[in-house]
């Protein structure tokens, strides 16, 4: 297990409540994630996990009605999604959309260069960027044919997920929220993607994994496992909690609460 340090949290979510189309989804949710930590969030369908991820990333359809989110000490609720991304927040989508007509390579390069300028670093030209990209492709065992196709265009479910992790690898965010990245991956892909995520994890960044399957946590060791129910975290534990959930399902926790 990696070091968890006792300094300031990377992200602090404080009593967050959100609504969409007048319906309250997240209710009084509080969570702190420190640099170097990996958190897993599990929970039944419709409990609000994706909502939580999208609210962190700044999806415009969700209205925050209560509470706040600070990231590296700054209030991110005032920031647009693109500004949050430039601060280093990354969300891996549960359902990545297809972007017709834009090649994966140009999309990746634009995203990367945007992040570079936000960090005050030099942008890379297409040739330099290609070198940088080749390493990432190798790490995730992705063929370079991938790059000439349009973003997620005609990708299989598993390819889309792999592409999300490729983007994460390229952008090297400070906080990654991966929404069911493991769903749809075959056994080999799950191993490769997990190894990739492990390589990207370090003491300065943090990862929130949203998953339904304990299996993922065999590859990526979480420091904390949270259970979400009806828009709130109702139980927090460690890896063992995930195993327990795998065996017993959610009912016993829901009864407890």
């Amino acid at each position: 297990m990696r070091n968890t340090n006792g300094g300031n949290p990377l992200v602090h979510i404080d009593g967050l409540a959100t609504e969409i189309e007048g319906r309250e989804i997240l209710k009084d949710l509080t969570l702190s994630v420190f640099p170097g930590e990996i958190h897993a969030i599990m929970g039944p369908n419709g409990s609000g996990k994706s909502t939580f991820a999208k609210v962190l990333a700044g999806h415009p359809s969700y209205e925050v009605t209560k509470g706040g989110i600070t990231f590296s000490g700054i209030d991110v609720l005032d920031l647009s999604p693109e500004e949050r991304a430039r601060e280093g927040i990354f969300m891996g989508f549960q359902y990545p959309v297809e972007i017709p007509g834009v090649t994966n390579s140009s999309f990746l390069r634009l995203a990367f260069n945007t992040a570079q300028s936000a960090r005050g670093e030099d942008e890379l030209d297409p040739i330099e960027f290609d070198d940088y990209l080749q390493d990432k492709l190798k790490m995730l065992e992705i063929s370079s044919d991938f790059l000439d196709r349009s973003v997620n265009g005609g990708f299989s479910g598993g390819e889309k997920k792999r592409n999300e992790i490729l983007q994460m690898a390229v952008l090297e965010p400070k906080l990654a929220i991966l929404d069911e990245t493991d769903s749809g991956l075959d056994i080999d892909a799950l191993r490769v993607v997990s190894q990739g995520v492990n390589k990207l994890a370090n003491n300065d960044n943090a990862i929130i994994l949203i998953t339904h399957y304990q299996r993922l946590l065999n590859y990526i060791k979480p420091d904390f496992v949270h259970v979400m129910h009806e828009g709130n975290i109702v139980k927090t534990g460690n890896e063992k909690l995930a195993q327990e959930l795998e065996e017993k399902g959610y009912d016993w926790i829901l009864d407890e609460t």
Partner: peptide
Amino acid sequence: QLFYFASRGIDTEEAVSMIING
């Protein structure tokens, strides 16, 4: 689509122009 771009740091204007140019 636009949120997808935004979540990668790319603003709406650039996203639209990229999609259209492609």
